[in-house]
Design a binder for these strands. Structure first.
Lengths: 121, 121
DNA sequence: TTAATATATGAACAGATATTCATATGAAAG
DNA sequence: CTTTCATATGAATATCTGTTCATATATTAA
């Protein structure tokens, strides 16, 4: 028996609260859902992306607008927009040479606003 | 003049939508707030931490409980709890050798539930 | 006091990630 | 059709992050 197993076994007998654990196990979403959830929040967890999303609260913007507004290179903005697109947080429409991005739906606003509430307390 | 500056200047004259940019600039929170916001979401953006938080939806749990429940080493759980503590997402109380953790406030639930809503659409 | 146990913490390492650079694509203008 | 411009993308790099390992701390029991 390796050391780590020994520790877990000790713990089993002495400090585990079985009732609590079983209750929680029953109500927790499955691993995949929680993984996806973490992936979603990871997308919000970068200041460039948050700035892009917040910028799109007010208006539809093209890549160049965003780049200048945030003072971030066009390339970096494009890369981040791709991530936002992949995660269905923004949508876009093409018009000539420009591509206009906007928020995909209201969830984006509400998630960000919830976060702001937490910060401003 | 270096290449990148030339590009920005071209862009200034040709594709920037001044009105949109000004509107957005007025309503955007300051950089520090947006940075903090990203930091907050970064904390939610890890599956181990999300699992810990979700586990605490149902019940107060000690480190050992969490470790067994999630099948993650005690050390890893401790490290992640520290991050959650630092960001005021969990609180704790000591009782003998055990330390019991629970959610710091309702924001945590609502942020996570908002995220779940987005995923399940 | 000493041993056992629950939790915490620092250092190290491996894997992930954001930006930059160079370049490609695609649309409009000349 | 060639040039210009807006955007996209792949590769490279530097930084960040999560886990593990070893060990420290603190509490209880013997």
């Amino acid at each position: 028996m390796i050391e780590s197993e020994k520790n877990i076994e000790k713990c089993d007998y002495l400090c585990i609260h079985e009732d609590n654990i079983n209750t929680v196990k029953e109500t927790m979403p499955n691993d995949e859902t929680l993984y996806d959830l973490a992936e979603l929040f990871k997308v919000f967890g970068d200041s460039t992306r948050i700035k892009i999303l917040y910028a799109l609260f007010e208006a539809e913007l093209c890549v160049c607008d965003i780049s200048q507004l945030l003072n971030v290179s066009q390339t970096a903005v494009s890369h981040q927009l791709r991530i936002l697109k992949t995660n269905k947080l923004v949508k876009f429409r093409k018009e000539g040479k420009n591509v206009y991005y906007s928020l995909a739906d209201d969830h984006v606003c509400s998630i960000i606003n919830q976060g702001l509430d937490h910060i401003n307390e």
